[in-house]
Design a protein around this nucleic acid. Sequence first.
RNA 1: UGGGGUAUCGCCAAGUGGUAAGGCAUCGGUUUUUGGUACCGACAUUCGGUGGUUCGAAUCCAUCUACCCCAG
Length: 334
Amino acid sequence: MKKREKICVLMSGGVDSSAVAYLYQKQGYEVIGLTMDILQKRLTDAEKVAKKLGIEHHYVDLHAEFNQKVVEYFIQSYRQGLTPSPCIMCNQEIKLGILAEKAFELGADFIATGHYAKIKDGKLYKGSDPNRDQSYFLFGVKKAIFKKLLCPLADLSKEETRSLAFEAGLEIHNKKDSQDVCFVENGKYQTLFNPPPPCGNIVDKNGKILAKHNGIINYTIGQRRGLNIGGGEILYVTGIDADKNQVVVGSIPDMIKTQITINNINWLGDEEPKDFTCEVKLRSRQQPIPADIHFLDNNTAEVIFKEPVSYGIASGQGCCFFAQNQVLGGGFII
RNA sequence: UGGGGUAUCGCCAAGUGGUAAGGCAUCGGUUUUUGGUACCGACAUUCGGUGGUUCGAAUCCAUCUACCCCAG
């Protein structure tokens, strides 16, 4: 990378992406900032940071795209009894999809983000700290992007990242980390559903009615709280039947699975995908578990766990492949 | 309307004279760029009602009420 190459930083106005912009500017690259407009409120912190750093900054209007690819996907998933993974979808479709394209249109040689993941030789790896690793959220990103993507925070601690922002004199250096569903207030995504979803029954595996639910969108597989069924053993959601508008509950043994099927696979490995053994993550914060991947076709595969999994595995969530520290892609749980 | 039994937090349930365990549920918090899990904390001045015995009762007595079972 030559110093006068142009790096476009995808800026959210948060600590991480701001630190990235500062980092490359400090190193002498030509840096521009790009921020997507998606919500009612414009992320003006990004603009302020860019101004403070003295770098060029642009907004890209992605209201329609975000609405369709993330919000609508989110709503439709829940309506179908699935549990959506909006962050995965946003990364692959919006941030490192359309927004990245805009960056290249603006003449960027590389794009950079504040993701806590490592990119090396066009391949995706875990970030150093397993507790902060965000590579899981990137398994669906198109392979070609990684050749042009920079994620320089992979080896930094959060404190080091914050001190970079502080060093740059940025007000946002102590801004709180983002969490919850970003496109809705306080993570209360239920407000997106209008009209509200219909109430229905909570049943056991034999179909016996145990209680009422206030819409299947409020539940996900493995969920314990909110069932309002007391007196007996601990119950978890073991199934969601959108057709019958029912939530099925049971105990831990009822959740155990030895294999799952995934589709919409995004393959990031070098060679053509074929059956292999690796580790998988079924949610962002969990220890990877060993599994055999058996491809049914290029888009679909069975994932057979070496040990049965006894926590909730929800359809709609991502299953990410890891070979050691490298991310080989992943798919969505059917 | 004869006999027997049971009545303790929303549910289940310890406790039989010494000053209300626990579990589930619920609520709050921690963790977390998705949902969830897990973890931590809170949660009956009161034991169906009313009297009585006792220094002291959810625990003993009386009575009322409700429900259950067996005989009708």
